[in-house]
């Protein structure tokens, strides 16, 4: 009897598990699912959790990766309205937002969806690039540069197109990954860059020489100015001295003859300071004393 009860319990547990497997399905946080009833998509499931369903063959569950996929376009040539050929590659982040729309269109194939997306993206960037001159892609003028606006325009167009054609996907973001020029053009650019470099090299050289020359002549001018100022100041100082001296000269006016005498004596002394040969007449005092004795002798 005890054995029977145990058997029944085990049986019930197994049955419950079987029923659960048939009637319940799980959607992971990274997934979305669509429930099909007799092959027709009837119920999208976009939130994670466990859900009820009728067993096969009434209902089937198709699960999709809900995460944001990375899409990268080819590197393709487009024409700007001002006649430049530009190579452009864009990337986009997209995910399946409406599995009930996605499934009937692409089945389980992400790849097929990306192939269709590729077409839409190409149309979008060809259209948008065709409206922007080359200077909107690259420019040193922030106002002229429309890089971000171009990305937004392409994104907007893809979003509209995918919605209109019922892809059941959402384009989350888009950016330009690569910009380039046709191979032949790069060579022309190199030639232009080469001549620009040469020009710049010369400009730098001459500019340097000119600036150096300016510095030198300014220095010469400055020093000349300094010296002239100094000379002017020195002569001012000298004339000050003369002015002071002139005050002292007034003293000599008391007895000009004495002043002259003293001046003469001083200059005589100065004049004869060196090794001089002096020829003197014996009449000069104090040699006049010699004359007196000489007269006595003969």
């Amino acid at each position: 009897m005890k054995r029977n009860a145990l058997n029944i319990t085990v049986g019930i547990v197994l049955f419950v598990i079987f029923v659960l497997l048939l009637f319940v399905f799980q959607v992971r946080t990274t997934q979305v699912a669509v429930v099909t009833t007799f092959g027709k998509a009837t119920r999208p499931v976009t939130n994670a959790g466990a859900y009820f369903r009728w067993p096969w063959p009434i209902q089937e569950v198709h699960k999709f990766d809900e995460r944001i996929h990375n899409f990268e376009s080819k590197f393709e040539q487009v024409l700007t309205p001002d006649g430049y050929s530009l190579l452009i590659m864009v990337y986009a982040g997209w995910n399946i937002s409406r599995p009930d729309v996605f499934f009937p269109r692409f089945g389980d194939s992400i790849q097929q969806a990306e192939e269709n997306l590729e077409q839409v993206v190409r149309n979008a960037y060809s259209g948008v690039v065709g409206k922007h001159p080359f200077s909107h892609f690259i420019s040193t003028d922030e106002k002229e540069l429309k890089f971000v606006e171009i990305e937004q325009e392409i994104l907007k167009r893809i979003q509209d197109d995918t919605k209109a054609s019922g892809f059941g996907i959402d384009i989350k973001f888009l950016g330009i990954k690569k910009l380039g020029l046709p191979e032949g053009v790069t060579q022309l650019v190199f030639e232009r860059m080469q001549s620009e470099r040469q020009l710049q090299e010369n400009r730098i050289k001459f500019e340097g020489e000119r600036m150096a020359e300016n510095i030198r002549s300014a220095a010469n001018l400055e020093s000349a100015k300094l010296l002239t100022e100094a000379d002017a100041q020195a002569s001012r100082i000298r004339s000050q001295g003369e002015l002071e001296a002139a005050k002292s000269y007034e003293v000599f006016q008391k007895e000009p003859e004495l002043a002259n005498l003293l001046l003469k004596l001083t200059s005589l002394e100065m004049f004869l300071k060196g090794r001089t040969t002096l020829i003197l007449d014996e009449g000069t005092p104090p040699l006049d004393l010699l004359k007196m004795t000489g007269r006595k002798q003969p």
């Binding site: 004596l265 300071k273 040969t277 002096l278 003197l280 014996e282 005092p285 000489g294």
Partner: peptide
């Protein structure tokens, strides 16, 4: 006096004094 004084100083410095008698 001044004249003599000066001559005195000068004569001591002079290398070769020549005195001419009449």
């Amino acid at each position: 006096q001044r004249q003599i004084e000066v001559l005195q100083r000068v004569l001591t410095n002079v290398a070769e004094p020549l005195i001419l008698t009449r």
